[in-house]
Write a protein that binds this DNA or RNA. Structure first.
Lengths: 205, 205
DNA sequence: TTTTTGATAGTTTTGTTAAAAAAGTCAGGA
DNA sequence: TCCTGACTTTTTTAACAAAACTATCAAAAA
């Protein structure tokens, strides 16, 4: 049982890749199942053989991206010289991820509120991975004696992640947005680096 | 010249009060000009004698609320024993303002993106007042020698205000919202207090 | 002259329907 | 088991009418 068919998995991957390209280029709503099928020279019906529907296909792409992202974080756990390196790594990784998949996220802007729960599951997993990486870094730093012991590292990291999110949505000017414009991403990145600088000092003796 | 008619001003105030009540209770879109006029036992046409249109009436109420808020901040400039007191005051004042005018802001949720520029002018004025209060508090604290001198206090406060905004929109659970639910306001308040705690320590020697 | 209103003009929202486009299904072939 | 063409169902779009509301105005009242 399980094991799964190799050939099937390969085909699934091809579908995911083609879908990723389309979603990245044109966004969710401007991509049709016919177009994806066309890119792969297969019938639309075959897509439905491999994936139950369009939104679950999108989720599968999203999950793949998220898994890569999470894996990258996990691979770097406990590899940092100090707390700041860990924070900087998280911010850089996040920045790169958003930059290279920017258009993919139009699905978020489109559905604005009430996104499917699956999305939030993935967002939460990513959040947990970030939380894990950073709170481990804090614990390590405490053991080293470089910063003050805190009762609840997770709570502190949660707070920092919320704050970083604030930097993102406040973006430039007072107009608050759900998702920043592409041209503001670098400024956000810079501001975030400044914030963790202060934040880290706040944790030190 | 100018001086303006007393009686007219009083009537304008009455209209603003009645409108405030309606907007607070039912929100912008569920309030009609007929209802406001009805509350004041006047004709709808008279409202248009005093205010050019509905949205400018709403703005006038908003501006009044904002002016009170800003005045409150200005009255407390340089009255704090230390930096933390200033930050706590800002956070408390903001919290109270949101709590007591919660439903008034449905206009923001309604128009989501592209709000009229007048709104953003007011938001910016409030932001400037907060910036002014807090950066003065920082400068005072630097003069006292209680914290490290920083090149650009305004930049630091900007960062903090963005971070505080992040606490607001991240709210509970991962689902990011434009405006938090009423039942989360207290939790946001608590988290903000925790954040400034760390933030202030980050500014100290 | 300023304040007020009833009547009414103009605009936006809401609901309906029809056509087009896209999503999703299925019987059957390789 | 993998695949497709033809088909059905659902969603999107456009057009339009009715209703609700905003906004205006000529004229009355103060």
């Amino acid at each position: 049982m399980a094991a799964g068919n190799d050939h099937q998995d390969i085909k699934r991957e091809k579908i995911l890749d083609a879908s990723h390209q389309r979603f990245l280029h044109y966004g969710y709503s401007k991509t049709t199942m016919n177009e994806i099928a066309g890119d792969l020279s297969m019938s639309k019906a075959l897509l439905y053989y491999y994936f139950p529907d369009k939104s679950q296909l999108y989720m599968a792409v999203m999950r793949k991206l998220a898994n890569d992202y999470i894996k990258n974080l996990e691979d770097h756990i406990d590899t940092f010289a100090n707390l700041k390196d860990a924070f900087v790594f998280q911010i850089n990784t996040n920045h790169d991820f958003i930059v290279s998949n920017y258009n993919f996220f139009d699905f978020f802007r489109l559905n604005e509120q009430n996104l499917p729960d699956t999305i939030w599951d993935i967002v939460e997993q990513v959040h947990l991975a970030e939380l894990n990486l950073l709170s481990k870094a804090i614990k390590t730093e405490i053991e080293r004696g470089a910063i003050k012991p805190v009762e609840n590292p997770e709570e502190i990291i949660d707070l920092l992640l919320d704050a970083l999110h604030g930097i993102k949505v406040s973006a430039v000017s007072q107009k608050k947005v759900n998702f920043p414009r592409k041209e503001h991403l670098d400024e956000i990145h810079t501001k975030r680096l400044l914030l963790i600088d202060i934040f880290i000092k706040g944790l030190m003796y």
